Simulated scan of single mutants.
Amino acid sequence: MIIAEGLTGSYGTVSAVQGVSLAVRPYEVTGLLGRPGAGKSTLLRLILGDIVPTEGSVAVQGRPVRGRRHPPQRVGASPDPASLPLSRTAREHLGESAAAAGIARARVGIVLQQVALASAARRPVGTYTRSERARLGVAEALLGDPPVILLDGLGDRLDGGELPRFGALLNGLAGEGRTIMVTGRALRPLTALTGRLVVVRDGRLVHDSDDGRPLRPDAADTVLVRTPLWQRLAYALADAGARVRLTDDDGLEVSDLGRDSIGALAREHGIPLTSLGGALWGGDPRDGAVPPAAPRREVPSGAKPLALAVRFPWPSGGTPDGEAGAGG
């Protein structure tokens, strides 16, 4: 069981998690939903002991967490996919992790079977798809056979067809008395994996399905938009007061402006949309090779959205280094 009371975690002067009180119970899978930057990963790091709380407290299995990471036999957590060793095979990576933690090597084969990676276990991790890397992260979390399991971003990385299988796996593990929390930014995959849904926004808990209240459409408040004229739309949205974030595949994640308003603004500016849906309520994530790491490009409200020191493709007439030109 995980119990957080008034939990606050800060980076310098910025509070990423603010006053969160939450009980995550055994025998169920709890989903933690929120847009990028909502505080999901920070909350998990507070529970893991990677971050010392600024205020409040958190206890796991009755033990207070005091800024010291739990052993994987007590709390299993999926790693950041970017930290996986690309030149190693899954079997090698898990074998090394097991040896370092004093876990029996026989567990490696067991968890690879559980996540359906046994046939790919001798391939380098660098050849894995995004979904396969997500499954490897689950295998690592299960390696110590822990009573508490934390899976960051799992629903956003699995193939749609794999969700029922992993929903059954997680529910089966929870049925053995384990406490499981899964985070994500997409509602549909997360509800396929979990039973209870908790929503965080700007570091605060704004919804808990245990309360019996319906989920508000604006609880997470992010809309994913796609257009071939994404640069023009980004300017228009920022001018309208929205917060805009450019995804790695040239989609726009828009906050603080509703779906209907975004559509009306696009029509007003003559910008065709190929997709207008909720990033948090949208469809299944895509399969395929994991793209190389790229910076997240956030557009602050009121600022020229592309005046950022980030290189991206620019049409003729733009500046060659990928930054917006002067004039604003």
Rank of each mutant, 00 (worst) to 15 (best):
V29S: 02
R25F: 01
G155H: 00
A82R: 15
A59E: 09
A82W: 13
W281I: 11
V225E: 05
L44G: 01
R245V: 13
R188G: 03
G288N: 04
A220P: 03
Y128K: 03
A324F: 05
G62C: 04
D211M: 09
R122G: 11
A324K: 07
I3T: 11
G325D: 12
L112A: 09
G327P: 08
R63D: 05
A99F: 12
V223W: 05
P81A: 03
G184F: 00
G184E: 00
A238P: 03
L33C: 07
D80T: 10
V198K: 00
L136G: 15
S57E: 09
A82G: 13
W230S: 06
P81N: 07
G137K: 01
R259H: 14
A77N: 00
L215S: 10
L142R: 09
P64M: 11
Y235Q: 08
D50W: 10
L308Q: 11
H70R: 06
R107A: 09
R178P: 02
G322M: 09
A289C: 08
R311Q: 14
S87C: 07
R196S: 11
Y11G: 15
V310Q: 06
G56N: 10
S87L: 06
V225M: 13
R66S: 06
A219I: 01
I51G: 13
L173V: 13
V108C: 09
E96N: 06
R25S: 08
T183L: 11
G102Q: 12
M1A: 12
D256E: 12
V148M: 06
E28P: 04
A240E: 04
L44S: 00
P315R: 02
Q61P: 03
L112D: 15
V125P: 00
L46V: 09
G328A: 14
D260V: 06
S57N: 07
S131P: 01
G263D: 01
W230T: 10
P71F: 01
G160W: 12
W230H: 10
G76F: 00
E140C: 14
L151W: 01
G153Q: 07
A309W: 07
S209M: 15
L265R: 02
L151S: 01
Y128A: 08
A192M: 11
E268S: 11
P26N: 08
T222Y: 13
G318L: 09
H93L: 08
R35H: 07
A238F: 10
G177I: 14
L306I: 09
R297Q: 14
P79K: 14
D287K: 03
G137L: 00
G251I: 12
I180T: 01
D260W: 13
E323G: 02
D208K: 00
E92N: 02
R286T: 05
G153T: 02
P291W: 04
G278Q: 03
Y128T: 10
L193F: 04
P164N: 09
D159R: 06
V148K: 02
P124S: 07
L276G: 09
